[in-house]
Design a protein around this nucleic acid. Structure first.
Length: 486
RNA sequence: CGGGGCGUGGCUCAGUCCGGUAGAGCGCUGCGUUCGGGUCGCAGAGGUCCCCGGUUCGAAUCCGGGCGCCCCGACCA
């Protein structure tokens, strides 16, 4: 990578572009431990904005935060059969502590269902104790074979919600409520509009009855699973004796859900909005929304700096996250490149000429085709309008992402040949019929490297449901969405 | 775990074939200069050449062994 001034072009090597931009925008760096990363302030700042937005949404829907421990007894993880089968290869295990071999090894949580539901079992006696609606913000470890900053690291940060309900219907409702909450969050905050739907058995969470997910389309037209919401049925409550006495006095097993999004979302934002100049951060997530670059020139330097301070204060008063870059060893041009690479939505330049004319130079991170990059706007007007310009920018990013998604969506594909052709000509999401046979999934994955991302939720389905399976010879039981995925 | 590649200043790499006392660009420090799209000049700091062993008068370079990392495939939020 080096300090070559230009990034690898997206069109040349998307994956190299991603690695470079993550490091050179100072989002994250590799730690000495293979596969794990240090999240730097710029990247963590983005995550913090995601966290606070989600946290509000969780609380608005009746959830509370709690914290469960990092270490889980090995026997807990082993309790649910599919759960342990799914996670066994990627567990990190503590066998020694206090200078001695432990009697029972501890697993570093890959997810917390087992410890959570074992505790719920203690707390829940009666239907009056339900529902339990908890979330935790935590780190987890899954020993992945191949890792990439943010997208797949051995340790990552996430939130995991865990709920217990008296009825299956209520738990299913919760699962879908969260799926919709995630979707809204991704639309409104990340400007990364996912499609949603049900996972096939081969892709669902180990231990779930059914899994739903959000699937977003990256700029290279590969899908990224950006959030999951699981209906766990009574699988865990049966293993951990999570029972309650119902209204009619009978002892029953509770119904559970779990759901999560992770720091992977940061990688998703990078691949959804970034361009050849670097990151583009949606304003609502940007640690700095407006950077002020004073043009320092000779005798007017102190006046320019004073004006910059004044503008900073006024922007802060309008609720804009702004900062001044007054480093004096860099030329203005060098700063432009740096902040563009870091994806700051707007830049304000203040120089002697602007002082004279009572104006500010406003530069948007993305400008429409043919539009001039730099707009000179009267100072008061520029400050007053920036909040709405930021909202506009946010909206434009969402719209552009939607258009990209729709433009690379192909519907009504009726045969394996057409499916292959679609991917060969650069399709992102491809909709087909499916017989429900996992062998078809397996075969397509083998041949085309594409998988069924979801059985789409109602609003994403095609107007006319496909009647035949993509494999040709059988009837379709459900429409499915195929994509090459991360 | 299979297949490929690579370990040399902070970073990217040249030097290795053909052994002779270690280089470039970028970055960093200081001073000056410049400042509206990656300023320029001068001076400077910085390296157990991944590790261990062998061959040799002499090893970054040759030989043997080890370790680590990256990329491609099988697993995954």
């Amino acid at each position: 990578m080096g300090n070559d001034k230009k990034l690898t072009l997206q069109s040349e090597d998307f994956s190299a572009w991603y690695n470079e931009v993550v490091q050179r925008a100072e989002l994250a760096d590799h730690s000495p431990v293979r596969g794990s990363m240090v999240i730097r302030p710029w990247g963590y700042g983005i995550w913090e904005h995601m966290q606070s937005a989600l946290d509000v949404m969780f609380k608005e829907t009746g959830h509370e935060n709690a914290y469960f421990p990092l270490l889980i007894p090995m026997s807990f993880i082993e309790r649910e059969k599919e759960h342990i089968e799914g996670f066994a290869p990627e567990l990190a295990v503590v066998t020694r502590a206090g200078g001695k071999e432990l009697e029972e090894p501890y697993v570093i949580r890959p997810t917390s269902e087992t410890i959570v539901y074992s505790m719920y079992a203690k707390w829940v006696q009666s239907y009056r104790d339900l529902p339990v609606l908890l979330n935790q913000w935590a780190n987890v470890i899954r020993w992945e074979m191949r890792t990439r900053l943010f997208l797949r690291t051995s340790e990552f940060l996430w939130q995991e919600g865990h709920t217990a309900h008296a009825t299956a219907e209520e738990a299913e409702e919760e699962t879908l409520l969260i799926l919709e909450l995630y979707r809204k969050f991704m639309d409104e905050w990340l400007a990364m509009p996912p499609i949603t739907g049900l996972k096939t058995d081969s892709e669902k969470f180990a231990g779930a009855v059914s899994s739903y997910s959000c699937e977003a389309l990256m700029k290279d037209r590969k899908a990224l699973q950006t959030g999951t919401s699981h209906f766990l049925g009574q699988n865990f409550s049966k293993q951990f004796e999570l029972t309650f006495q119902s209204e009619n006095g009978k002892e029953e097993y509770a119904w559970n859900t779990s759901w999560g999004v992770s720091t992977r979302l940061v990688g998703g934002v990078v691949m959804t909005h970034g361009d050849d100049n670097g990151l583009v951060i949606p304003p609502r997530l940007a640690p700095t929304q407006v950077v002020i670059i004073p043009i320092l020139a000779g005798e007017e330097t102190s006046e320019v700096l004073a004006k910059a301070d004044e503008v900073l204060d006024q922007l802060k008063n309008t609720g804009v996250r702004a900062r001044i870059d007054n480093r004096d060893h860099l030329s203005p041009g060098a700063k432009y490149f740096e902040w563009e690479r870091k994806g700051v939505p707007f830049r304000v330049e203040i120089g002697p000429r602007d002082l004279e004319k009572g104006q500010l130079a406003l530069v948007r991170r993305l400008t429409a085709e043919g539009e001039s990059r730099r707009a000179f706007v009267p100072e008061a007007e520029a400050i007053a309008k920036l909040p709405e310009k930021l909202e506009e920018f946010q909206d434009d990013l969402l719209e552009a992402a939607r258009v990209r998604r729709e433009d690379s969506t192909v519907r009504g594909v009726g045969s394996l040949g057409e499916l292959e052709e679609a991917f060969d000509s650069g399709a992102g999401f491809v909709y087909t019929g499916w017989s429900g046979d996992p062998a078809i999934e397996e075969m397509v994955k083998e041949r085309l490297k594409a998988t069924i991302r979801v059985l789409p939720s109602q609003e994403f389905r095609s107007v006319t449901a496909p009647s035949r399976c993509v494999s040709g010879d059988r009837e379709s039981v459900a429409e499915v969405v195929w994509a090459r995925a991360y």
